[in-house]
């Protein structure tokens, strides 16, 4: 994960501001992940690979996504883990 900045380490007031901003951003992100569960998501991956799957969950450090019914070019994989390092972006509708 991403460490605190050098200024924040030296200045407690700056650290508190930074931590507050961090928590607000993270909370919104987690709520967004929650809203993604059980929805059809399209993943845009490297080498122009586009796959569709039903989103399940992500681990806390966002290294892997757990998905179901992953539509690959050679068939449907019932359950799968996608490494986030292989993903450029993903989209879904609410």
């Amino acid at each position: 994960s991403i460490p605190t900045s050098a200024e924040a380490e030296a200045d407690p007031e700056q650290l508190q501001k930074e931590q507050h901003a961090r928590s607000m951003l993270r909370e919104t992100f987690l709520r967004c992940l929650l809203s993604m569960a059980n929805r059809k998501v399209q993943f845009n991956m490297y080498e122009k690979v586009k796959v569709e799957a039903t989103f399940g969950a992500s681990d806390i450090d966002v290294l892997n996504f757990q998905v179901s019914d992953l539509h690959t070019p050679i068939g449907v994989q019932k359950e799968a883990l996608i490494r986030s390092q292989d993903v450029i972006s993903f989209t879904y509708d609410v």
Binding site: T28, F29, C32, D61, V62, S84, S89, Y92, V94
Partner: peptide, 30 residues
């Protein structure tokens, strides 16, 4: 909407019809 402070991923929202929206998550590393 937000940036995940752990992975630096951006969450973008595009509003369509009322009550509808499309969400795009762009991974921080990319």
């Amino acid at each position: 909407l937000t940036v995940d402070p752990v992975s630096a991923s951006l969450v973008l929202v595009d509003f369509g019809l009322p009550g509808k929206a499309s969400v795009q998550v762009v991974m921080g590393h990319a």
